[in-house]
Structures are given as structure tokens and as C-alpha cells.
Design a protein around this nucleic acid. Sequence first.
DNA 1: AACATAACCTGGTGGC
DNA 2: TGCCACCAGGTTATGT
Length: 269
Amino acid sequence: MPELPEVEVSRLGITPWLVNETITRVIVRDSRLRWPVPLELSQAEGLPIKAVVRRAKYLLIDIGIANIVLHLGMSGKLRIVDAATPTVKHDHIDIVLGSGKCLRYNDPRRFGACLWQPLGTTLKQLTNLGPEPLTDEFDGERLHMLSRGRKTPVKSFIMDNDTVVGVGNIYANEALFMAGIHPKRSAGNISRERYKHLALDIKAVLTKAIEQGGTTLKDFAQTDGNPGYFKQHLRVYGRTGLPCERCETPIKSMVIGQRNTFFCSVCQR
DNA sequence: AACATAACCTGGTGGC
DNA sequence: TGCCACCAGGTTATGT
């Protein structure tokens, strides 16, 4: 479900319901996520939420003594519901609020995570992350510098969290189309000038997707239950065989790094 | 270090 | 209708 835009849309959706609310109870129905859900979570009970922050695809719920760290994996979803709302399959965690609402975490595949990060510490999952794509720390200069001597396909390179965080399969495909770069081209074989364009296109596609409420493929929903509307803007992802919007050539697909990859063999070189 | 590959898990889809 | 193979938005662990 979530790349950076979908996580950011989730953050924007839940934040107004959480900030300044007190956590009255934490209910863990199934702790078998990517890592076992920590018992320390119960220490959150009675504490007010100060902020909800995103780093890469992680959401950090700041409760002063610690951050509750959430990751949605491939299929995780967050909803704000009345605490009394009956649960459905895969509703693994509730964070119940003084308002009577609750933040409900649902994740069929259980690739997601809920972690506990005490104040002043940093989880290993949050160390060694590259820069946020929508900050000035990330630019074409960085892509060019880090890619020198690298043979890995440029698509794998930009999806690597050491390079830049938050670029998943959908938006990697889209940004490479926008930049006119073939996804399989060796990262080290791309000029500084082309990387400048690519960095700007990554920023542009992520920004646009956030504005559109993310991309709903099958089951992503904003926290109000509405779908994201970026799907209608996808130019290559999932469009195998359909005409390229720029040159009419059928979009091709191939597997790169275990991920399905979509591109126009004429527009992308 | 760099790179490739398997693995984690469930559900939806399409073919027969 | 049923069965089965295959695919999916991410990340980590392991092997060369």
C-alpha cells in the first residue's frame, strides 16, 4: 500500500485526531507483525500525544517519554474510528484516545511494524536512512556523487533507502519516465545534468501524489476511507501494453530487483 | 563494498 | 463453483 505519499497522507489524516489527546488504552490483538509488538506500548496509557512526525515511511507518535513508531509495510492501513466500532479481520492494534476515538491499525500481510523508541534513543531501523526527498538535502548533485562507479540499475539505486528515502516502486517508475531515463541503465552511467532532472522529477511526482491523496491501487484508503486520486495520473506504472502518452509506443514491463518495472523504450534511454 | 536473491505473509485475480 | 499459480505499495537477512 504505502510509499511516502500514502504515509504522508495517512499522517495528515490522523494528526488532527491525535495531537493533544490522551492515550487511555493500547490494545494489541495480534503482536505478530514484522517484529513482535513491544510490551512497553502499555506505558503510553495516560500520556498525551504531542505530535505525529514522519521519517521516511515511518510514522512517529511523540508521547514525550518515547515515540510509538509505526510502519505500514505493504498492506498496512490506519483508520480513525469510534473506539466501540467492531473490529474486522487483521485489526491488530488500537490506540484508544480520551475523545472516544481510536487509531486502528490493520495489516493483512503483517509486513508492517509497531515499535517503541524511548526518548533520546534511535531505533536501528531509523539510523542510516538517506535524506528526505522533499528537502534540499536531496538533489541531483547527491545522486550523481553517490552513483559514481555503481553498476546497479538506476531504478534500484533510487529505491535504495541509503540514497534517498520514500521512493517505492510506483514513484520510481513514474519519476524515471518523467526524466526520460531507462530504468535498467547503470546508475554510474548517468550524467550530473540528467540526475538534476531526475531529482526534480522525484520531488514533483511525490508532491503531486500527496496533493492527490496518494495512489489507491486496490486497498489504500485515506484515513477518512476515501481513495487516493493519483492513480489517474500514473503514466507507466501498471500500463503494460497501453500506449505511451508521449509517443504512443506500447509501454513495456520487465523485472528489476524483484520488482515489476514499467517504461517506454522510446522515451526512456 | 557492491550486488543479487530469498524470505517474511495474506488476499485478490485470472486461468482452467 | 473450485483449485491453483501468480502477483502485490517494503524491508531485511544472507550469500557470492
